[in-house]
Write a protein that binds this DNA or RNA. Structure first.
Lengths: 111, 111
DNA sequence: TGATTGTATCGCTGATTGGCAATATAGTGA
DNA sequence: TCACTATATTGCCAATCAGCGATACAATCA
């Protein structure tokens, strides 16, 4: 891949920042199972409505979610399933690191 | 993939945050081409030494870089090439989004 | 030893932002 | 119209953090 210019690096960084927040990741994870209304997310996450709404807005603005009104409610759903590839890669790395630390500490029970 | 628990979401978010910074991305991009000393990075990035050193520390602590002394200098190199997969995925999405916005604005020259 | 170069750390500041309570807006039904 | 529910927005506070100058630490050489 060609070298990214400063503006592009900014855009990539801004995108990663969207994913750099536990509440937003929890929302994505929940929506991965099923589309949800704001209230359903508020309940299942145990977070405040204002905050869930704010974080949903950030995820939506980043182009990660779809949104549609359903009567009185608003239903959010995943627009970009590719983001979960990102999470898989990161989880894989974190897991490997954890195993490595454990092996070094406990004397390599190794896998 | 199984649902991640709050602690795991925290860890993933913390990892993404490391990538959510243009200077750090620039460093990774530079190191992808070749291992570099701190001073070489300072020159090629046009950033202050203190800041480059700080950001290198953050990348190193995240397990993304290797570090070795070479005489008076310290040479950093990529430890986890997998991170570039992440960047590719993000770049791909940003590019698609940009194309979509352009098509909608200019009347679908399409692709 | 002291001088020089390369790197890391410290203290600070300004900017960003997650979370909150309060309030505004939107849709539904009476 | 009014009451009710669902969602979004606003103003605020505390925490985080990139970037900076100054300085400490480390390695080399004279």
């Amino acid at each position: 891949m060609a070298a990214l210019k400063p503006d592009q690096l900014d855009a990539v960084a801004r995108f990663f920042r969207v994913l750099a927040e536990p509440t937003r990741l929890a929302i994505l994870q929940e929506l991965r199972r099923n589309p949800r209304t704001v209230n359903e997310l508020v309940e299942s996450l145990g977070a405040k409505q204002a905050n869930v709404s704010k974080q949903l807005g950030i995820l939506f603005d980043a182009g990660l979610l779809d949104r549609k009104r359903s009567g009185n409610s608003v239903v959010y759903s995943i627009r970009e399933p590719a983001i979960f590839e990102l999470c898989e890669i990161v989880c894989g790395k974190l897991k490997r690191d954890a195993e490595k630390r454990y092996a070094a500490f406990a004397g390599k029970p190794r896998r």
